[in-house]
Amino acid sequence: MTDLKTELLEVALEAAARAGAFLRDGRPADLGVAATKTSAVDVVTEMDIASEKLITGFLAERRPDDGVLGEEGASTEGSSGITWVIDPIDGTVNYLYGRPEWSVSIAARQGDETLVGVVAAPLRGETYRAVLGQGAFVNDRPAHARVAPPFEQALVGTGFGYLAARRAHQADVVRELVPHVRDIRRGGSAAIDLCDVAVGRLDAYYERGLNPWDLAAGDLIAREAGALTGGRPGEVPSGELTIAAPPGLFERLQSRLEELGAWHD
Rank of each mutant, 00 (worst) to 15 (best):
V118T: 05
V118P: 03
V119G: 01
V119N: 02
V119M: 04
V119P: 05
V119K: 04
V119R: 03
A120Y: 04
A120N: 15
A120Q: 10
A121E: 13
A121V: 13
P122W: 08
P122N: 10
L123S: 04
L123G: 02
L123E: 15
R124I: 00
R124W: 14
R124D: 15
R124Y: 14
R124G: 10
G125K: 08
E126S: 11
E126K: 14
E126L: 12
T127R: 14
T127N: 09
T127Q: 12
Y128I: 05
R129A: 12
R129L: 13
R129N: 01
R129V: 06
A130E: 03
A130C: 03
V131T: 14
V131I: 14
V131N: 04
V131C: 09
V131G: 02
L132H: 10
L132D: 09
G133A: 11
G133N: 10
G133K: 12
A136P: 12
F137V: 08
F137M: 12
N139H: 09
D140A: 12
D140S: 13
D140Y: 04
D140V: 13
D140P: 00
R141V: 09
P142V: 12
P142W: 05
P142R: 14
P142G: 02
A143S: 14
A143Q: 08
A143N: 12
H144T: 11
H144L: 11
H144D: 01
H144G: 00
A145F: 04
R146M: 03
R146A: 11
V147C: 00
A148Q: 04
A148G: 05
P149N: 07
P149H: 09
P149I: 08
P150R: 14
P150D: 11
P150K: 08
P150C: 02
F151K: 05
F151L: 14
F151N: 03
F151S: 02
E152D: 13
E152F: 06
Q153T: 07
A154M: 09
L155Y: 03
L155N: 01
L155C: 04
L155Q: 02
V156C: 04
V156Y: 05
G157Q: 05
G157E: 06
T158Y: 06
T158M: 13
G159D: 15
F160P: 00
F160A: 06
F160D: 00
F160L: 11
Y162R: 12
L163M: 12
L163G: 00
A164C: 01
A165I: 15
A165C: 01
R167Q: 08
A168I: 11
A168K: 10
A168Y: 13
A168T: 13
A168G: 00
A168Q: 14
H169G: 00
H169M: 07
Q170C: 09
Q170S: 09
A171R: 15
A171K: 11
D172T: 13
D172H: 10
D172Q: 15
V173M: 06
V174G: 04
R175A: 13
R175G: 12
E176R: 15
L177T: 06
L177V: 09
L177C: 05
L177H: 08
V178Y: 03
V178W: 07
V178A: 11
P179R: 03
P179S: 00
H180P: 00
H180E: 15
V181K: 02
V181P: 01
V181W: 05
V181Y: 02
R182V: 01
R182A: 10
R182P: 00
R182T: 01
R182M: 03
D183W: 01
D183H: 01
D183Y: 01
I184C: 02
I184V: 14
